[in-house]
Computed example of a mutant assay.
Amino acid sequence: MAEAEKDILDRVKTETIALRYYLQGRGFTMALEAMEFAKSYHQGTRKDGITPEFFHQVSMANFARTLVSGLRHPEEVFATIFLHDAVEDGGLAVAEIRRRFSDRVADAVDALSKVIGGVKRSPADVRRMIEADPVASVVKGIDRANNQGSMLGVFSLEKQVEYIEETEGFILPILKQGRRSFPDQEPVYENIKHLLTREIRLLRALHAEIRAREAEIEGLHEHAAGPDI
Score class of each variant (00 low, 15 high):
residue 202 L to D: 02
residue 201 R to N: 08
residue 123 P to A: 07
residue 95 A to F: 09
residue 78 F to S: 00
residue 92 L to A: 11
residue 36 E to R: 04
residue 137 S to R: 00
residue 88 E to I: 13
residue 114 K to Q: 06
residue 175 L to P: 03
residue 130 I to M: 09
residue 3 E to C: 03
residue 30 M to F: 02
residue 36 E to C: 02
residue 185 Q to A: 02
residue 106 A to G: 13
residue 32 L to S: 03
residue 71 L to K: 00
residue 106 A to K: 10
residue 60 M to D: 14
residue 143 D to H: 15
residue 86 A to Y: 04
residue 168 E to N: 12
residue 9 L to R: 09
residue 93 A to V: 11
residue 167 T to F: 09
residue 194 H to T: 14
residue 93 A to R: 14
residue 184 D to C: 08
residue 75 E to I: 00
residue 172 L to S: 06
residue 55 F to Q: 10
residue 142 I to H: 04
residue 90 G to M: 01
residue 190 E to K: 05
residue 55 F to C: 01
residue 163 Y to D: 14
residue 32 L to A: 05
residue 229 I to P: 15
residue 43 Q to W: 01
residue 135 V to H: 04
residue 192 I to S: 08
residue 148 Q to D: 00
residue 144 R to W: 06
residue 113 S to P: 04
residue 15 E to G: 08
residue 60 M to S: 14
residue 124 A to D: 13
residue 136 A to C: 05
residue 206 L to F: 06
residue 38 A to E: 01
residue 36 E to G: 06
residue 85 D to M: 10
residue 197 T to Q: 05
residue 16 T to N: 07
residue 7 D to P: 00
residue 201 R to G: 02
residue 154 V to W: 14
residue 158 E to A: 13
residue 213 R to E: 13
residue 3 E to T: 09
residue 26 R to G: 06
residue 146 N to V: 13
residue 191 N to C: 11
residue 134 P to E: 03
residue 212 A to S: 02
residue 95 A to M: 11
residue 113 S to R: 05
residue 130 I to N: 03
residue 206 L to A: 09
residue 31 A to G: 08
residue 186 E to W: 10
residue 41 Y to D: 02
residue 152 L to C: 02
residue 24 Q to N: 07
residue 86 A to V: 13
residue 176 K to R: 15
residue 93 A to C: 00
residue 183 P to I: 07
residue 3 E to A: 04
residue 34 A to S: 14
residue 97 I to W: 06
residue 93 A to P: 09
residue 118 G to R: 12
residue 224 A to G: 04
residue 100 R to N: 07
residue 124 A to S: 08
residue 110 D to C: 10
residue 120 K to G: 01
residue 196 L to H: 08
residue 82 F to V: 04
residue 195 L to Q: 14
residue 8 I to V: 15
residue 183 P to Q: 00
residue 86 A to I: 06
residue 185 Q to M: 08
residue 203 L to W: 07
residue 121 R to L: 05
residue 7 D to T: 12
residue 16 T to K: 06
residue 25 G to K: 05
residue 116 I to W: 00
residue 161 V to H: 06
residue 25 G to W: 07
residue 78 F to I: 00
residue 198 R to K: 11
residue 188 V to R: 01
residue 18 A to V: 01
residue 54 F to P: 09
residue 28 F to T: 02
residue 201 R to Q: 05
residue 175 L to K: 04
residue 192 I to C: 05
residue 208 A to Y: 13
residue 72 R to L: 10
residue 49 G to Y: 12
residue 190 E to Q: 10
residue 205 A to Q: 14
residue 158 E to I: 13
residue 128 R to D: 11
residue 143 D to I: 11
residue 225 A to H: 15
residue 194 H to G: 10
residue 184 D to V: 04
residue 134 P to Q: 06
residue 58 V to D: 13
residue 29 T to F: 02
